[in-house]
Design a protein around this nucleic acid. Structure first.
Length: 467
DNA sequence: CTATGGCACGGATT
DNA sequence: AATCCGTGCCATAG
């Protein structure tokens, strides 16, 4: 009986399928937004109480027992535990998630970047300028850069470009410092100015940022020194300062090995969709894979509402019925999304286990198509499920899920290590040969490409001067 | 002449 | 159909 009704809703193909697709491609944070708005607009949708595991106090998934406590004690520890978890609140990126209070709960007021910046700037803006500021903030890309030019804004609002520029300058000083810049260099300059108020800035820093950023990333220090009539050592200092204190992408959570102390505010915008960690953070324990479901408690169709449907006049009945349909559809779709994510992660974690445990080098080349085949799902499903999502690894790094499908990552790290351990600088073709001895066949040109991807400068400029 | 970076083409992936 | 990636060829720098 219940089953039947369920089935009917699911097999209602077109619209439902479409919605599942859409939901699948949403990240945890986006999904939460969606659910919140649905909850507010649809009276038939109800959020019932959260359940906690009596043992570990962790929030329980919508159905079933606690995934962790219910694990049989002596289990084949090779099998990672994969499960869907309600969000325990937003994580800071360091916690295990188990009975731990988040340090920085952003969730209570999850505001988006534009709002966040506007709040800070509002006080310093003239009333008539706020609208413009809001307009500008709404035209930022995910890194916090402008997608429009000041000229365009000026035309649109019938103001002088200089006035617009003033507003932008103001916005640049707000929390993710450098937001609203046109490119990384500009953002970094803004950060320099802001830092200059408190600490000393190495000489030439501004000049280097302005004109030689690409060279810095390639470690072409001597070139820059020559051009600026400075010393290589001095430029090296500047480069260190830059990498330690500046963030080229103010609004982006910095993943990978870019460390950045002054990024307090920006990190909160990228919550991982999946957490992978050792149970209780002990590497001896099995891996736990936790898929964040941004809902506390259980979502369901309000039973009272359903009952009330029978005793209501005709005109409303239609409308109400629609609401109920919509609600149950949404729930169904969310379940499907969760299910797909779970299937995907189960495969992914098993296949890439070495990578998760021991790092980039062990990455297995993998394509979305292969996974799709394994799972019997369509490639596009996998694509959607992967795109935009991020995963937190046991080592606390947050990486895009797409790296699990990066065919070259493992080779790149091998090359990187090879160069790190080299005595005499190896040329690209020498590296190619070495790799071939290890059974890897790859073109010389490709070595060069990987090398530059890793920001390693060419052999002849890599004379053994260790800093 | 050797080592690299740029451009662009073709096949694989999404 | 659109994009990404590995490569080959060629120009350039040293």
């Amino acid at each position: 009986m219940f089953q039947n009704q369920w089935q009917q809703t699911t097999t209602h193909t077109s619209a439902h399928l479409a919605q599942t697709m859409t939901l699948l491609s949403l990240t945890a944070a986006e999904l939460q937004q969606k659910i919140d708005s649905e909850l507010a607009n649809n009276p038939a949708l109800e959020l019932v109480e959260e359940r906690r595991c009596p043992m570990c106090k962790r929030l329980l998934p919508p159905f079933g027992p606690c995934p962790i406590c219910s694990q049989p004690k002596s289990e084949n520890s090779d099998d990672p535990i994969v499960f869907i978890s309600p969000r325990e609140d937003f994580y800071t990126g360091t916690g295990t998630g188990i009975s731990e209070v988040p340090d920085e709960p952003y969730a209570s007021e999850m505001i988006d970047l534009p709002t966040y910046v506007l709040k800070q700037a509002a006080a310093d803006l003239k009333v008539e300028d706020r609208l413009i500021a809001a307009y500008i903030l709404n035209h930022l890309d995910e890194d916090g850069f402008l997608t429009i030019t000041p000229i365009e804004v000026a035309r649109y609002h019938h103001r002088l470009p200089s006035e617009i520029q003033e507003i932008i300058e103001l916005l640049k000083r707000c929390d993710p410092v450098g937001v609203c810049s046109a490119h990384p260099a500009e953002a970094m300059l803004a950060q320099v100015e802001s830092l200059a108020e408190n600490i000393e800035i190495p000489a030439f820093t501004r000049e280097v940022i302005k004109d030689y950023l690409p060279k810095v990333s390639q470690h072409h220090f001597s070139d820059i020194a020559r051009a600026l009539k400075s010393s290589t050592q001095q430029i090296q200092n500047v480069a260190n300062f830059i990498s330690e204190n500046l963030n080229p992408f103010p609004a982006r959570a910095h993943w990978g090995d870019v460390r950045n102390p002054n990024a307090s505010g920006s990190e909160a915008f990228h919550q991982p969709d999946v957490l992978i960690y050792y149970l209780n953070d002990n590497p001896a324990n099995p891996l736990v894979v936790e898929i964040i479901l941004p809902v506390r408690g259980t979502l369901k169709v309000n039973q009272l509402f359903k009952d009330a449907l029978k005793s209501v006049e005709e005109e409303h009945a239609v409308e109400w019925k629609e609401d109920i349909e919509k609600a149950s559809l949404l729930i169904k779709c969310i379940q499907q999304r969760s299910n797909a994510m779970k299937l995907l992660l189960e495969q992914l974690v098993v296949l890439q286990k070495d990578y998760i445990i021991s790092g980039d080098k062990k990455m297995v080349p993998l394509t979305r198509a292969k996974i799709a085949e394994e799972l019997g799902l369509h490639e596009s499903t996998i694509s959607r499920a992967v795109s935009g999502k991020t995963i937190q690894l046991p080592n606390k790094k947050i990486v895009p899920m797409a790296v699990f499908f990066d065919r070259s990552l493992s080779l790149r790290t091998v090359i990187k290590e090879m160069i790190e351990h080299e005595n005499t600088p190896l040329s690209d073709s020498e590296i190619k040969e070495k790799l071939e001895e290890e059974g890897v066949s790859i073109a010389r040109r490709t070595v060069a490409k990987y090398r530059s991807m890793e920001g390693i400068l060419p052999a002849h400029l890599r004379s053994n001067s260790k800093s």
